[in-house]
Design a binder for these strands. Structure first.
Lengths: 150, 150
DNA sequence: TCGTCGCATGCAATTTTATTGCACAAACTC
DNA sequence: GAGTTTGTGCAATAAAATTGCATGCGACGA
């Protein structure tokens, strides 16, 4: 993982649709050499996947909401069960168990409020071990990226 | 945006490194037709970008933290100013202003605790208009995806 | 210090993939 | 129902990725 690898990772995190020759020129390598580096990064699992990122509004998911959850029973297996259940929901994009006052945090991508209603209905029913939950809405997005500094 | 477009978007959100011919076969189109659809989705901005997603641990960023922030002055321009400042931090992957008891929420990708220390030092200095902030750590990740259901 | 080994590199040939022109068919408009 | 728009598949072409091979550089041990 030298300087060139890091540069490649930065560039690919910003735009993975560029041609290999283009990237090669930018990092100062030949296309073949550049390609071999990228393949190595792929094989090593540093690059986990290459994905298309959609415009949420144009994909009909403009509402972003965050739910913090306090469970009834806090044991590890209960937390895990809740996370598994939450992860199955397509509208849930992130599901974490967290330290602090609450047990879990969910990030949601919603079409409308009805969808939120239906979702909370499913996740927070009587038997679901949830003591309390707090819903907050994202008003403005200052930043939302998948890019990790290397 | 018919059934085929949606299927393409779903597939590309999961893996955008597949060949066009491969995708075309899966959705039941010819390569040329499939390519034109994808290009149309790109041009329309439905597909915002194509990016490489890294393995955080292998990229040396294993700590994920969430900071909720309460500002001193809550006016829109103050919130915006804070978000802009937060967005400039490479370790901040998501920065939102939110409804509810707090004003903003940040999602962080950190190398270690020192980095958190330095970051909070920068973001929450005396003059920064932050009244209070609460840091929580992600213990377990049940789900973390960029995929939006169509 | 010199020789050797391992590894990354660039070039050029090859293979694979993306792209385009074209003719045709379906849907939609007037 | 004629004309227009829009999408489609096929085949040719262009572009890109991939591979084999020879070279060069640095690390390591004799």
């Amino acid at each position: 993982m030298d300087r060139i690898d890091k540069k490649l990772l930065t560039l690919l995190q910003q735009d993975a649709s560029r041609t290999n020759a283009d990237l090669a020129a930018e990092v100062g390598l030949s296309p073949s050499s550049c390609l071999r580096r990228i393949r190595r990064l792929n094989a090593a699992g540093v690059i986990e996947r290459v994905v298309a990122v959609l415009n949420p509004a144009k994909a009909g998911r403009s509402v972003k909401a965050i739910i913090t959850v306090e469970l009834e029973r806090h044991g590890e297996q209960y937390v895990r069960r809740f996370l598994d259940m939450a992860a199955k929901e397509p509208a849930v994009t992130q599901a974490y168990s967290v330290s602090g006052a609450t047990d879990a945090l969910l990030m949601l991508r919603l079409k409308d409020m009805e969808e939120l209603d239906a979702l909370t209905e499913r996740l927070f029913r009587e038997e679901s071990n949830v003591a309390r939950y707090y819903t907050t809405f994202v008003i403005r997005t200052g930043k939302d990226t998948t890019e990790i500094p290397i």
